[in-house]
């Protein structure tokens, strides 16, 4: 059975930590980091990367367009 795996890359220095991506994600992949970026924002990151399905919802609602989304279809192996 085909399985979809996704991943996001956040441009950490441009992220303003608004958190809109966190609530937009259907798979609860994203959290705001405890650390801050150069501007003092708690930037978004994948806290649960295994769950990412590459739906791009996070990127679509991101006001600063700091998220790139990758997606692959793989054969489930175990």
């Amino acid at each position: 059975m085909a399985k979809v795996r996704g991943a996001i890359v956040v441009d950490i220095e441009k992220c303003k930590g608004c958190g809109l991506c966190v609530v937009a994600c259907p798979s609860k992949v994203i959290d705001l980091a405890k650390e801050v970026n150069g501007k003092g924002y708690n930037y978004a990151y994948m806290s649960n990367p295994e769950a990412c399905i590459g739906c791009a919802n996070c990127a679509i609602v991101c006001p600063d367009t700091v998220i790139s989304v990758y997606k692959v279809k793989t054969e489930a192996n175990a």
Binding site: A56, S68, Y70, K71, V72
Partner: peptide, 13 residues
């Protein structure tokens, strides 16, 4: 993850 994050898999940027 690094096998997913490849140019050919980019779906949104």
């Amino acid at each position: 993850i690094k096998d997913i994050i490849k140019e050919e898999n980019l779906v949104y940027s």
